[in-house]
Structures are given as structure tokens and as C-alpha cells.
Amino acid sequence: MTVALRGLSTVVPPTVLVQPEVRDVFAAQEGLSRLSQRIISTSFDVSGIETRYTVLGELSRDAHPDEPVFFDIDSGELLLPGTKARNELYIEHATRLYLDAGRAAIEATPGVEASDVTHVITVSCTGFYAPGPDYVIARDLGLPAGVQRFHLGFMGCYASIPALRLAKQLCEADASAVVLVVSVELCTLHLRSSNDPDTIVASSLFADGAGAAIVTAREPEPGERAFDLDRFATRITPVGEGDMAWKIGDHGFEMVLSTAVPAIIGEHITGALEPLFAPEPALVDALSADASGDAIEHWAIHPGGRSILDKVEARLALSEAQLLPARDTLRDFGNMSSATVLFVLRRILDDAASADGDRVAAMAFGPGLTVETALLTVRG
């Protein structure tokens, strides 16, 4: 049975963050040490990001709210709201993005209607509420009353790949299944001024966005662009548990993202790919010969940061062109946690250079340090 990823759609909120302008705001905050100011300048300038998107309209140049919550544009001060205030904004804005992305995926899938959806899988690590987004999607998009719902929460940047794996498994168990997968991340709700280097790096990278798709064994329509979901694999690296973490604090969620992460990924990336490639000896041989870029045409790498992409490119001997979808996504949208790899896959699908039958290796990294991988084939 072939299970396909169809109707892949992405959505971002309307407020644009221009990287140098955000850098200057963070650098101007009171209480920063000289070292922190240097880290801010370096982190923002070498991030590979030009623009990001946020649900925080207060960060717009033209915003002048009577009672600012996150940013007082008149004084230039970044405020420090509590976790409850941040999560209330998550409920408001994430709900809208879940619905917009889910609706877009259904409308982009020929021959599939809302009434056909049998399962919903939602993904997020940047907020919580119940009844949750899976319930809201079922209610407001007109899905069947008996639709089965799952939420993958607080897994981090790699979570969309397990969501697609679960969707594939549901389709393999029931050939009539039509699974709607929606990832929404509002990372900017947790940005704050700090002297902590990990917090500064996170503030230079993270952004808001949503991605959604339909996973089903139904045959794509003639001419429809889609991906076959071939197989998935998971690896936990033997080191790095303390180098990437995501915890709930009194003033939002707190990211640990140490400078050791790119080196850990570079050291263990081939081992993480081995179980994915194992069923095809030619792919294993290419990996051993540092020729993975010759065996796999396209690489959907989660752009956790520019240094991570640099390590992946060098370690796997990939071409600059093979990293363009990831680098361009980072440049235009920043790191949107779990939603980001869906943006990268969308760019590959939109690329005129990707042809029917091309292989795609997807990879995302998160707490653990966990590496989630997927092998896909371009259809259409």
C-alpha cells in the first residue's frame, strides 16, 4: 500500500519581523552586560534570517496599544508577561492558524472534502488548552462527529515527522483513512530579554507559523504534486540530553539551546540516517562513501540554525543547491519549531527541479537529543 502526503499547505501570521530591527530592540534593553550585547549582535547577524513572522501585533512598527503586554514601542522596553498571559494569546492566535492551515490543506487536496477526514493529528510545543486544537478543527471545519483525534504536544522541533509517521500507520491499518495533520507553533510568545546566552540565541531564531497536510492511501489525481511516504526512523544520540531542552517557567517557556548542538548533530547524523536507509543497500553504500547527495536528490533539513545546516551540508557532502530549500526557509521565516520542516517540504514540491520519482530525505532535531527522519518520493 502506498500512502501519500497531499495538500501540503503553510500559513504565517501577518506581522513581519525584520531581523536587524529586532536585533536593535533586544540590544537596547536595560540590564544587559557588554558580553550579552556582543552575543546579541553576533547571534542575530549570523543567523541566516532576514524576516520572521509573529502573532504579536505589538511588535509592528505601527502598533501603539493602550496597554502593551509584550513591547512598549514608545519606551522601547520589552515587557515580561507571565506564562498565563502568554498562553491566553496562544489560545486566541493558534486557534485561528490551526483552522486556516487545516482548511487550506483540505481545499488543496483534490477529491477530498472535510466530511472525508477520519483522523486529526495536531502538533505544538508552544501552548496548551483543552478542549484543544484537535477539537476546534473537528468542530469548525465540519469534520464528521466521530473523527478520531490525537495531539502530539511538547515534543519540540522534530514533532511533525512523528505526526506524519503516525498518520501513515493509521492509513496502513485502515486503507480508507484520511488523516489531517496540522502543526502550529507560536514561538515568539516566549521571547524575552536576558543575559543568558541560550535565551539570546533562541530570541534570534524562533518565529511563528503553521503547516498542514492530508495523509491518505487514496491515489493522487493526475498531475497532482504530492509525496509518497516511504518510511521513517528515530535515533536518540548518546550525548546531548542537556543541550536542547524546553521547560515551562513563570514567564513563558524557557529554551535551552547550547552551542554544542551543531557539533553533536554533525557527529551523529550518519548514524541517525543508517536505520532510515537500511532497507536499500545502495543508500547505505552512498552514506558510507560520503555520497549521500548523489543517491538522494532532495534534502528537507529542519533549519534549526545556520550552523546546523552548515554541519549537515559538510558531513553529508551535500551540494549548495540541496540545502537551498532549508536555507531559504530559514532566511524568510526563521525557525518555527515543528512546523518548519513542512515549509521546507513545500519548497521542494514547488521547485521545478524536483521531478516525479525523486527521493527526498527529511530530518528534524529536538530535545533528547532526538533525530527524526523520513524518506519520501516526489509524485507528479
Rank of each mutant, 00 (worst) to 15 (best):
L170T: 12
L170Y: 02
C171M: 00
E172L: 15
D174Y: 00
D174V: 10
A175T: 13
S176C: 07
A177D: 09
V179K: 14
V179L: 11
S183Q: 02
E185R: 04
E185C: 01
E185Q: 01
L186D: 01
L186G: 13
T188F: 05
L189C: 05
L191S: 10
L191M: 14
S193N: 11
S193H: 06
S194Y: 02
N195P: 09
D196H: 14
D198V: 12
V201P: 03
V201Y: 02
V201H: 12
S203L: 01
S203N: 12
S203V: 02
S204T: 01
S204I: 04
L205P: 12
F206L: 11
F206T: 01
A207L: 14
D208E: 03
A210L: 11
A210S: 12
G211D: 00
G211V: 14
G211E: 01
A212F: 10
A212L: 10
I214L: 08
I214N: 10
V215T: 04
R218G: 14
P220G: 02
P220Y: 00
E221C: 10
E224N: 06
A226G: 15
L229N: 12
L229I: 07
L229V: 05
R231C: 09
F232A: 11
T234F: 15
I236G: 08
I236D: 02
T237I: 00
P238K: 00
G240Y: 13
G240C: 03
G242E: 14
A245Q: 14
K247M: 10
G249K: 05
H251C: 04
H251V: 02
F253V: 07
F253H: 12
M255D: 04
M255F: 04
V256T: 15
V261M: 10
V261N: 10
V261K: 13
P262V: 00
G266F: 02
G266D: 03
H268M: 01
I269D: 09
T270W: 00
G271Q: 06
L273P: 09
E274G: 06
P275D: 03
L276R: 15
L276W: 07
F277Q: 07
A278D: 14
P279W: 03
P279D: 07
P279L: 03
E280D: 14
P281M: 04
P281G: 12
P281R: 04
A282Y: 03
A282W: 09
L283Y: 15
L283F: 15
L283G: 12
L283I: 05
V284M: 10
V284L: 15
V284G: 07
